[in-house]
Structure formats: C-alpha cells, structure tokens
Nucleic acid binder design. Structure first.
Lengths: 151, 151
DNA sequence: GTATATGCAAACTGTTTGCAGGTGA
DNA sequence: TCACCTGCAAACAGTTTGCATATAC
C-alpha cells in the first residue's frame, strides 16, 4: 500500500469520526509511518523531541498517548504486548499479520508467520466454540548471537 | 501431584535458598494452592482479607507481591499475561503446560494444549537460530455464550 | 463561532522499595 | 543471636484525565 493511500485513509477516518486534522496528529502520523520498527510511546516522544520544530508543531506527552491510541483504534497501528510493561506499537503498512520471536537476553524481536500455526489456531478456537478475533503468539528464547556470547 | 508433596518441595526450596518459612508465606502458599483459578495480586489480597485471622497471621500488600514473586521464581506459580495490565498467576499443580483462549467479552479463560502447535513453535524457533525457553499463546475471541447473548 | 484539541500538571493503577521494628532458626 | 522478614508509606513507571487555553473547520 502506498503512503499516500494510507494518509488519505487516515484523513477520511478523522473526517468520518468528526475529528480534526491538527498539526500534532499529522506529525505523529507521519512519524509513525516513517519507521518500520516497533516503538513505545516514550521512544516515540524521544523521536519527536529530537527534531527542532517551531512551537506550534510541538507535541506533548499527553497528545502522543492520545494519538497513538487513536491510530490504534483506527487500525493504523497495532498494539504489541512484549510483556515488558510498556505498550509497543507497530504500523500496519506492508505489515501482514505476523508473530514474534523475542530474545530474552538482548530484546531483539524477530517477526515470523507460519500458516500451519494460523490454521491450527482457527481449528482450536472453533472446537471450543470461540469465534477468533485476534491472537498473540510470542516465542521467548535466546537468539543465536546471544548464545554465542554467553559461551 | 499431592498437596503434601508440593508443600514439602516449597519448604525445601526455602531452605535451599536460606529463606524462612514465616506465617505469611505459609498462608499465601496454602491460599494459592487452594484454588484452581487464575488470580491477580489484588484479588489474592482480597481473599486473604476476607478471612478473619489474628494479627500475627495478617499479610500486607507488600508481602503478597513479594511472595507471589518468590513463588513464581521457585516455579510454584506461573505468570500469565492476559494483556489487562495486571499480572495473573496460576499454580502449577496438576497443571501441565497449556495455552489460553480468552473471551474479550466476558473475560472467561479456557485452557488448551495442542502438541502440533508446540512442535511447530520449536521448529520455527530453531529455524531462526533461537533456543526456546518459553512461549505464550493467547487466542482472543468471543465465546459461544457471549455470541448467543449478543444476538 | 464553537466544538474539538492541546499542554500542563495532577491523578491513577499496578507494583516496588527503604527503613525501622519484629521474628524464625 | 542475628540475618532475614514484615508492614508501612513513600516512590515508581506507564498511562490517563481535568481544566483552561488554543485552534481547525
């Protein structure tokens, strides 16, 4: 999906909800889609702080939290719970569904997706009478380079 | 596994670590193994508060948190992250490894275990050079009775 | 013009910690 | 005895919220 397309769909989303396209929302939106990495609200705030922009473009902590929530509601970001206590986000462009391998030692996050597991999950949910809305699979372990270092 | 056996192993655990068997730890241990349900620290505190015990048996919030952590370290409890912001615990007796189906509507938690998924997880981790230590699979959806109610 | 957003700081939730006094081995 | 524990209250981290002011439409 092209950046312009999703930007447009963000503007539509705001319009439909009767919300306004403010400088802050615009800046947060652009920033969130400018990286392919996962980020937390605080990391994000750091990124914004690095840029030296004139006062009317500045974004407060409260607005970052509010807007990340908004983008998540709208389906532009996805919440990723890595179990660290902080909410991690990732944007949704060119990011088909995937799960995560997390290195307990260096916190590196590797994405993967396995259709066989996806299918089994559906099967299991069905057999328990659940209608699946989403799922979250985290594999925790030690990555190759950390194992090497440990020796 | 019999209750007595695990109680013994808890006492051994304390001894090995040079820790003491206090009234508080004993009470928390018994309570944690008296239910088969998941619980949070605050729920647990509530349970303890319901019982009218003499002062030396009373347990403070700090001690509940400390002791649940201790029991988790010792492998007597398992941490279950249901994504609600609070830590949920479940004890380990007669509870082989399993994953969870969570109803987004009524919060009901159903346990399941599927060896085919377990095997695939190992395979995926290996193929990415990870050595798996544990994993966490949560399937979120709407359970049968909530779907029925919704209609 | 006016409803919606923002920034600020204060509130909140779940959890951890420092310290003075209590207690199990 | 004395290291380990506990209770208390204060600290903490991440996040949310109330309110006065600013701004998009």
């Amino acid at each position: 999906m092209k950046h312009e397309t999703i930007r447009r769909s963000f503007e539509d989303f705001l319009k439909t909800k009767g919300l306004r396209l403010t400088r802050q929302r615009s800046r947060i939106f652009e920033k969130a889609f400018a990286t392919h990495d996962h980020f937390t609200a605080e990391t994000f705030l750091g990124w914004l702080g690095e840029e030296d922009v004139p006062k009317p473009e500045r974004v407060s902590r409260a607005t970052v939290y509010r807007t990340l929530g908004l983008l998540t509601d709208g389906g532009f970001l996805e919440l990723l719970d890595v179990g660290s206590g902080e909410a991690h986000y990732e944007h949704v462009i060119g990011h088909k569904h995937h799960d995560h391998l997390i290195c307990s030692s260096c916190s590196r996050i590797v994405e993967f997706m396995d259709q066989r597991i996806e299918d089994l999950q559906e099967e299991i949910a069905r057999s328990h009478g659940f209608e699946l809305t989403h799922h979250d699979l985290r594999l925790m372990g030690i990555c190759k380079s950390c194992r090497r270092k440990a020796k």
